[in-house]
Computed example of a mutant assay.
Amino acid sequence: MAVIQATDSDFNNILAENEKVVVKYYADWCGNCRLFSPKFKRMADNEQFKGIVFLDVNAEVSPEARKAAGVTNLPFFAVFKNGTLVDTVAASKEEAVVNLINKLN
Rank of each mutant, 00 (worst) to 15 (best):
L55C: 06
N58F: 03
K81S: 09
N58R: 03
K39P: 00
R42L: 13
F76T: 07
G31N: 09
N82G: 10
T72E: 12
V89G: 09
A69L: 01
V79R: 01
V71L: 01
A44I: 07
K67E: 11
C33V: 09
G51C: 06
N32C: 11
D45C: 08
R34H: 13
N46C: 05
V53I: 13
T84I: 13
A65D: 03
D45S: 14
F40V: 04
A90Q: 06
T84N: 15
L85I: 10
T72A: 12
G51Q: 07
N73V: 00
F76Y: 14
V71S: 02
K81T: 08
S62G: 01
R34G: 05
P38Y: 11
F40A: 05
I52W: 02
K81A: 10
F49T: 06
P38W: 09
D87E: 15
F77T: 08
E64W: 00
V53C: 05
E60A: 09
N82W: 09
L74E: 04
M43S: 06
E47D: 14
E47L: 10
S37M: 14
E60W: 05
F76R: 02
C33T: 10
L74Q: 06
D45F: 09
I52L: 07
G31V: 07
S62R: 01
L74Y: 10
P63A: 05
E47I: 10
A91G: 08
A91W: 07
F77N: 08
L55Q: 04
E47T: 12
E60M: 08
P63L: 05
W29V: 13
D87G: 08
D87S: 15
R34F: 08
K50W: 02
S37C: 08
A44N: 09
R34C: 08
V53E: 03
A69P: 02
A78D: 02
F40D: 03
A78T: 05
K50A: 13
D56W: 04
C33I: 12
E60D: 15
F76C: 09
N82I: 12
N82V: 10
F36D: 09
D87Q: 10
K67I: 07
P75N: 07
L55Y: 06
R34S: 12
A91N: 11
L55R: 02
E64F: 02
F40S: 02
T72G: 08
V71W: 00
G31F: 12
D28G: 15
G70C: 04
I52T: 11
A65N: 03
G70Y: 00
G31R: 12
P75I: 01
S37A: 15
G31P: 00
D56Y: 10
F54M: 04
K81G: 01
F80G: 00
Q48R: 14
G31M: 10
K50I: 04
A78L: 04
T84S: 14
K39D: 13
V86A: 00
A65P: 02
A78I: 01
G83T: 12
C33M: 10
G51A: 10
N73G: 01
E47V: 07
R42Y: 08
C30W: 13
R66E: 07
F49G: 07
F54W: 04
K81L: 08
F49Y: 14
D87N: 15
Q48C: 03
W29I: 12
R42Q: 14
D45V: 05
T84H: 11
A91M: 05
G51W: 06
N46A: 13
D87W: 01
E64S: 06
